[in-house]
Nucleic acid binder design. Structure first.
Length: 477
RNA sequence: CGGGACGUGGCGAAGUUUGGUAUCGCGCCUGGUUUGGGACCAGGAUGCCGCAGGUUCGAAUCCUGUCGUCCCGACCA
């Protein structure tokens, strides 16, 4: 009976994964559609979730020596045009401001789709000597890309993110930065979001417009589609040459600096939903959950129950983000409600418990119930939260492993692509033509060339020519 | 951007074929009874039927346009 009502509230992911996703976004009160196509009103709960992610990322950026800056949201057309590959990559989806009031602007302004050119313009004015380097900057901002198909958090016209932009004296130093930040992202995803990721390099076809190399962390969602969770780009000195950023080097010669950029977005909220969520709603990794423990008084009109619940919450204030739900709704309603919102731990306390000095702790992701002495809670809750984190990570990892397949021939890879959702590992010769053919015939794209390589075969899965690289393929968000 | 479906109180729907006073369930408000998996009783409020034109004595219903949402594809760091 209870199950039936859950299904009424949220479409089951087996029936329609997309609808399930949208239902969770709405029912968990993360965001609503705004009246602008493809844009969201991000609600307090969704915002709190993002703030928790953001705070941790920001902490890690500062720990690795980065400073935050704020650059304009407008880019003059002439500035955008300076780097050819870059502008071609973004031109189809940028929004233009053409008028101020009713007066036409002398030069139209694009709303930043990303801020490389602004950082370049800025760098050109502040760097003269090798002593000015490196510049290690990060910006928290929103950017705008007029995408044709939109979905809450996964792809919206405006989205919030951070973009790191750094400038270095040498190529090696920039490459090391690119790698360092990819590792920060991977560590954040795994340690903070309980989300296993594959680290690797993008093929030339999939890399960022204007980059020499793009590195990525790729995660696998419940439905077997891949999601690019964070990227880190090495630019070489291409942008520096286009924007005439120079410095006087140690030897007295004029040199071009080497650049990186790296970004992670509110799309990670979508990734969390599709990695951990279930048919009862959201399941949040404890480290970013706005509420980690919800305390539910049972038979709360009876004397002492609400006070008891409040006392439990007070005792946990220093070890967890905790909330008491003393609203007049029935216990069953509250169970369902807080499960939809993905709160990792629920503490139930009724008159019987309080009399015995105990309470019932229920873990959201597996519904396991244990009875705990109230006095032990401050010690037990942090351990339980860590257990939940580990449990989520292991569950997600097991799913990814069971949904990762190997193919050694074109027939095999086409057949797997059509019947088994997930990653497909296969050898690749490095030819764009083979990549295109796999897209054409199997409907899959290269997700990344993982750092952890395996020699699955000697030849390319597509053309049969010698191949050195093992590639993860799949459908992607 | 193509193909399909759909916009009716906060949510889900009926009504549209055949034009004639806006209907149901949930939720919401008030009061009371309840409380270990979405409680119950009584009373009450909430709609320019997505928006804009048109046809008509009269439009949720017919016509045109437009905006938005969902699904599938294309596109997309």
């Amino acid at each position: 009976m209870a199950e039936k009502k859950m299904v009424e509230a949220i479409t089951s992911m087996e029936d329609n994964f997309s609808q399930w996703y949208t239902d969770v976004v709405h029912k968990a009160e993360l965001a609503r559609h705004s009246s602008v196509r493809g844009c969201m009103y991000v609600q307090p709960y969704g915002t709190a979730l993002w703030e928790n992610m953001r705070n941790e990322l920001d902490r890690r950026f500062k720990e690795t020596g980065h400073e935050n800056v704020m650059l304009p949201m407008f880019i003059p057309e002439s500035l955008l045009q300076k780097e050819k590959d870059h502008v071609e990559g973004f031109a189809p989806e940028v929004a233009w401001v053409t008028h101020g009031g009713s007066e036409k602007l002398t030069e139209r302004l694009c709303i930043r789709p990303t801020s490389e050119v602004l950082f370049c313009d800025y760098y050109a004015g502040i760097v003269q000597s090798w002593r000015d380097l490196p510049k290690l900057y990060n910006q928290w901002a929103s950017v705008c890309r007029l995408e044709k198909t939109t979905r809450p958090f996964l792809r919206t016209l405006e989205f919030y993110w951070q973009e790191g932009h750094t400038l270095h004296e040498t190529a090696d130093e920039a490459k090391a930065e690119t790698e360092q930040m990819l590792n920060v992202y991977a560590d954040f995803a795994e340690q903070h979001l309980a989300m296993p990721v594959v680290k690797g390099r993008k093929t030339d076809k999939e890399k960022f417009a204007g980059a020499v190399a793009t590195y990525t962390i790729e995660a696998l969602m419940h439905d077997g589609q891949a999601l690019q969770a964070g990227t880190s780009h090495y630019f070489g000195d291409g942008f520096a040459r286009a924007f005439d950023i120079t410095f006087t080097g140690r030897s007295g010669k004029v040199e071009y600096p080497h650049q990186t950029s790296w970004g992670m977005t509110t799309r990670m909220i979508g990734a969390v939903i599709m990695t951990h969520g279930d048919n009862s709603g959201l399941v949040l990794p404890p480290k970013v959950a706005p509420i980690q423990v919800v305390v539910l008084p049972i038979a709360q009109h009876k004397p002492g129950v609400i006070d008891g619940a409040q006392a439990i919450a007070d005792s946990l204030k220093d070890v967890a983000r905790v909330k008491v739900d003393a609203s007049d709704n029935s216990p069953g309603w509250k169970f369902a409600q807080w499960e939809m919102k993905g709160v990792p731990l629920r503490v139930e306390c009724g008159p019987r418990d309080l009399e015995a000095g105990t309470c019932v702790v229920v873990t959201r992701h597996n519904r396991e119930k244990i009875t705990v002495n109230i006095a032990d809670l401050p010690e037990q809750i942090p351990a339980l939260l860590q257990q939940v984190h580990d449990g989520l990570y292991q569950k997600a990892l097991a799913h990814r492993e069971s949904a990762t397949h190997v193919a050694t021939s074109m027939d095999e890879i086409c057949s797997i692509a059509k019947t088994k959702p997930g990653f497909i590992k296969a050898m690749w010769c490095g030819d764009l033509a083979c990549e295109m053919q796999l897209k054409e015939q199997a409907g899959i794209t290269s997700r990344c060339i993982p750092f952890e390589q395996e020699k699955l075969a000697d030849t390319c899965v597509c053309c049969g020519k010698p191949a050195d690289d093992m590639v993860y393929w799949g459908r992607a968000y």
